[in-house]
């Protein structure tokens, strides 16, 4: 795997309701809730691109995009 690949967490803040499902089930603790209870990628470099946050988000508010090399 290339170390140079960049993973982008596209978060729709208007749709996020801060339920915390993505934060809880992230295997690498990439995501956190901010003071407005909206999710943000606190440690994007740790992301392993499993996309479980995107798949489990009840609000369809997260999209994980891998830039560069495909895994």
């Amino acid at each position: 795997m290339s170390k140079q690949k960049k993973i982008l967490h596209k978060i729709n803040r208007n749709w996020c309701k801060g339920c915390g499902i993505c934060v809880h089930f992230c295997p690498k603790n990439v995501l956190e809730l901010d003071k407005d209870d909206k999710v943000f990628a606190a440690h994007p470099d740790d992301c392993i691109f499993c996309r479980m946050c995107e798949l489990r988000c009840p609000d369809l508010a997260i999209e994980v995009i891998s830039q560069g090399n495909k895994i």
Binding site: N14, W15, K17, G18, C19, G20, I21, R56, C57, P58, D59, L60, A61
Partner: peptide, 13 residues
């Protein structure tokens, strides 16, 4: 959107 379901509702999943 955002939809009517409560935060964390399983229906969204």
């Amino acid at each position: 959107f955002p939809h009517i379901w409560c935060p964390g509702c399983g229906h969204g999943i």
